[in-house]
Amino acid sequence: MSEQIEQLVQQMCLIRHTETALLELFSQGKVRGTVHTCLGQEACAVGVVSALNKETDIIYSNHRGHGHYLAYSQDVYGLIAEILGLPAGICHGVGGSQHLQFNNFYTNGIQGAGVPITVGMALAEKLKGSSAIAVPFIGDGTFGEGAIYEAFNIAALWQAPVMFVVEFNHYAQSTPSLMQHAGDLRTRVDTYGIPVTVIDGMDVCKVKAAAAIVAEYVRAGKGPAMLFLETYRLGPHSKGDDDRLQSEIDRYRLRDPLVVCRQLMSQAVFERIEKDAASQVSSVIKELLA
């Protein structure tokens, strides 16, 4: 059990160090375009993906997908190379930060468009008679896109094996969730008959446990379900743009998934995991920039 928890923490540390390094590379002018980091949301990525069958299940991520990708593949080298625009990148530098593909993992940079696509992927698996489920990751901002409601409706109507994962991080780029959504997002899909499980997205163990239960429900052919994760983006939307109140960010820092998880292990073990992740990331970057 403690070994499993160490693995979850190791993956979260790897995501945190990779993204912190990417922001640093950006500020040095070594990364072009944009970098959407998921600092603070690592427990969502690691908790959900660790509850899936990585051989068969399908993940459709979004513009903030580094964490999902690393939780799925552990491929720090391929991801950083991709974002640096190098031929060794997983899409040879064509995709960059937002357009990644590897085995059953996909990302694209259009908000909401991936949700009907994921429903189609899930239906394909259902038609094949496989036990795979498909998992789109969306944020609260994506609830403004019409495409997702068409997808919710058809997924429920046709009983597609989809586990919708919402990372409710309270912001769409710079605009707070309260300024863009009427009503409560937690109850939005009630009308489609899609059950919702709301969980603290800062606690990796809770996320994993809930994701496993919801995934089993979907896998059993009971139709789509939603896992709604309460989280917070500790970093900027992209690069360095951030106008939020420091006091608000500081309040959430206490709930940082890498703070919350420390009570699960000794300080020595945590420090070793952190150090290993940091050195893995720095040696990849050293090699790629050589």
Binding site: I58, Y106, A113, V115, P116, I117, T118, V119, G120, M121, A122, L123, A124, E125, L127, K128, A134, G146, A147, E150, A151, N153, I154, L157, W158
Partner: peptide, 25 residues
Amino acid sequence: VLATPISESAIVGISTGLAVRGFKP
């Protein structure tokens, strides 16, 4: 042969997902 709701965007989105995963929609 699947009769869909009036959801043109989803019809093509779902078809894209089916195509990526081995079907010919």
